[in-house]
Simulated scan of single mutants.
Amino acid sequence: MVETKTEAYRQSIYAEVTTRVIKELEEGRLPWVQPWDSAHCGCAMPHNAASKRIYSGINVLILWAAGIDKGYRSQAWLTYRQALAAGGNVRRGETGTIVCYADHFTPKDEEQRAREEGREAQQRAFLRRFTVFHVDQCEGLTDALIQPAMPLAQREMIARADALIAATGAEFRVGGPQAFYSPRGDFISVPHRQAFHDRINFYRTALHELGHWSGHRSRLDRDQTGIYGSADYAREELVAEMGCAFTCASLSIHPTVRHSDYIGAWLAVLREDERAIFRAASQASKAADYLLSHTPAEEWPS
């Protein structure tokens, strides 16, 4: 079968992003745990400045990396047309950041076969690219679009994290020597808060385990049957790591690494399948969204 230009184009997106993530991991850096303390912008999820929509999946990693590498002051992005519609424009000479989104199409031959067989045609997923610009790359925008959000004090972060944990209704067993989630028992075990030198680390740990909890068959139904050391186990750990990072950032908590010793296993998974990081990032976004849905922003303590 001859590969079409469209198929090659789709595959190049997967390969390009996966190669970039592999390079980061090989150098000991995790794309979902950036050096926020040295960044100009506060820790937050990247969002569209016009629609306020939060970017998800692999685009979070792409935009975090671009924003921190270039020293931008916020996590706000726009398309070229959105900048014009907002009364501004992208400055001459600025280079945008390419992100992507999943779409679906139905091949013509599949439509024909489906009609002949009396069934519903099956769609195929593919990625589309589009370009966004950071608001710092634009001029003429209103202050409401370009003004960075004020960072939260730690007490506010903790209040929001406490509200989320309570709202999930997850069973927490506090006092054990280790933190883990039991899919079979559907409970989370964490050490006492006093065991954490930095109080905020209790919440980073709890949110990581809640990332696993979200994957239970009664919730998001991820495959959690992998045994320690297996590729399936590494994939689930990758989802929980990124899901925790996305949830932390949504609460203005700086993400940290829970299990850096899995880097070798993650590299093996990504080298074997160039779409693995896309699937993991998508599942991580779903996990973070699921957890955050329990506590609407308007109900968070201010």
Rank of each mutant, 00 (worst) to 15 (best):
C100P: 01
D103L: 06
P107S: 10
P107E: 03
P107M: 07
P107I: 12
P107L: 04
K108R: 14
D109N: 03
R113M: 03
G118I: 03
R119M: 02
A121S: 13
Q122T: 15
Q123R: 14
A125C: 10
F126V: 11
V132R: 04
V132K: 05
F133A: 09
Q137F: 06
C138D: 02
C138Y: 01
C138P: 09
E139V: 14
E139I: 08
L141Q: 12
T142A: 15
A144G: 00
I146Q: 02
I146E: 05
Q147L: 15
P148G: 10
M150C: 08
M150Q: 14
L152N: 01
A153R: 12
A153Q: 13
M157Q: 15
A159I: 09
R160W: 13
R160C: 10
D162A: 14
D162G: 11
A163V: 03
T168L: 05
A170K: 06
A170G: 07
A170F: 04
A170E: 07
E171L: 11
R173F: 05
R173N: 12
Y181Q: 01
S182D: 12
P183C: 08
R184K: 15
G185T: 04
G185R: 10
D186C: 01
D186V: 02
F187W: 09
S189H: 12
P191M: 02
P191A: 02
H192Y: 13
Q194K: 11
A195S: 14
F196C: 12
H197A: 15
D198W: 02
D198Q: 14
D198S: 08
R199E: 15
I200Y: 07
F202A: 00
Y203E: 05
Y203N: 04
R204M: 03
R204E: 06
T205N: 07
T205L: 09
T205S: 15
T205P: 11
A206S: 13
A206C: 13
L207R: 11
H208S: 08
E209N: 03
E209Y: 09
